[in-house]
C-alpha cells in the first residue's frame, strides 16, 4: 500500500489524472446539487437568454434555446459514465470468458473463437458501431449495445494471449494433476493472474468508450435530444463557429478532460500493478 502511494506521488501526472477523474465522477454524481439549473438537462426553452457568451450565472454560456451549458455538460458526464460502465460491465465478462476458453482449451475451440473475434476486430470499430446504430433505433440502450459489440473482442484477444502463456505455468499443471475441473483452472487459477492487465485496460478504456460514444452522437447516431450529450453538443455548436465558440469549446474540453484523466489513471495503474508483480 505504501508502495502504491509512493508511485502515485512520484509521478505528478498520475495525481493530475486522479484529480481529473475525481472531478468528472464527483460532478456527475452530485449533478443535481452543483448545477445552477438542473431542469436545463431536459427539454426546456428560455429564449430570453439564448446563445449567451459566458457570464454569471451562465459560466459557460447558454445554447441556442437558452439552456445553461455548464448544467448540460455535467449531466452529459453522468450519461457518458453510465454508458461507459455499462458497456464495460457487459463487454469485459464476455470478452474475458471467450478469451479464457480459447486460450485454455486450444485446438479447434481456439480456432473457431479467435477467428470469430478476428472478424469483429477486422471491421473498423466506429464503422461497425455506425452500421449497427443505422439499423437499430438511435437510443441510449442501442448505443450501449453497439459500443459493446465492438468492444469485447479486444478483451478476448488480451485474455487469450495471457491465458496461453499462463497455462504453461506449473501451477496449472499442478491443479490439473490434483483433479481440478476445467472451470476451476480457468476461473480460479488463470483468471486471477490476468486481473492486473484486465483492470488496467478497463481504466484506459473508460475514457475511450466515452470518446467513441461521443463520436457516435456527434454523427447523430447516439443519444438523442433533449438528453444532453457531449458529442451532439459539439456537433450542434460547430455550425456557429467561430462566433458562438462556447457552444463547441466547452463540450470539447469536457471530453478532453474525461478521456485524458482516465488515460493517466490507467497508466498509473499499469505502473503500480506491474511493479507489484
Amino acid at each position: 500500500m505504501n508502495r502504491t502511494l509512493a508511485i502515485l506521488l512520484r509521478n505528478p501526472l498520475s495525481l493530475l489524472g486522479l484529480a481529473l477523474v475525481a472531478l468528472v465522477v464527483l460532478s456527475a454524481i452530485s449533478a443535481d446539487f452543483i448545477t445552477p439549473f438542473p431542469e436545463h438537462a431536459g427539454a426546456v426553452v428560455d429564449f430570453a437568454n439564448f446563445n449567451k457568451a459566458p457570464e454569471w450565472p451562465y459560466i459557460m454560456g447558454t445554447d441556442l434555446v437558452g439552456r445553461d451549458l455548464f448544467t448540460r455538460i455535467v449531466y452529459a458526464y453522468r450519461i457518458s459514465l453510465i454508458l461507459g460502465v455499462v458497456v464495460l460491465a457487459i463487454a469485459v465478462p464476455i470478452g474475458v470468458t471467450i478469451g479464457l476458453v480459447a486460450g485454455y482449451f486450444g485446438g479447434w475451440v481456439e480456432y473457431v473463437l479467435m477467428r470469430v473475434t478476428d472478424v469483429f476486430l477486422s471491421i473498423p470499430p466506429l464503422v461497425l458501431a455506425m452500421s449497427m446504430m443505422g439499423v437499430l433505433e438511435p437510443t441510449l440502450t442501442n448505443g450501449m449495445i453497439a459500443v459493446t459489440a465492438m468492444w469485447w473482442p479486444w478483451y478476448t484477444r488480451l485474455v487469450y494471449n495471457l491465458a496461453r502463456s499462463e497455462k504453461e505455468e506449473g501451477y496449472v499443471l499442478a491443479a490439473e494433476v490434483i483433479g481440478a475441473s476445467k472451470a476451476h483452472v480457468m476461473f480460479r487459477e488463470i483468471l486471477p493472474n490476468c486481473v492486473p492487465s484486465i483492470l488496467t485496460k478497463m481504466t484506459l478504456d473508460l475514457g475511450f468508450v466515452i470518446l467513441i460514444a461521443s463520436s457516435l452522437s456527434f454523427l447523430g447516431l447516439g443519444v438523442q435530444p433533449p438528453t444532453p450529450d457531449l458529442g451532439s453538443m459539439v456537433a450542434d455548436g460547430a455550425k456557429y463557429l467561430p462566433d458562438s465558440w462556447w457552444l463547441t469549446v466547452f463540450p470539447g474540453l469536457a471530453i478532453l478532460v474525461a478521456v485524458f484523466g482516465f488515460n493517466l489513471v490507467g497508466d498509473a495503474l499499469r505502473e503500480i500493478l506491474g511493479a507489484e508483480q
Binding site: G170, Y171, A174, E189
Partner: peptide, 16 residues
Amino acid sequence: MSMIFQDPTSSLNPVY
C-alpha cells in the same frame, strides 16, 4: 495419487 514437479515455485499459484 499425487505428483511433485521440477520447479516448486511455479507450481504454486502466485496470487493465492
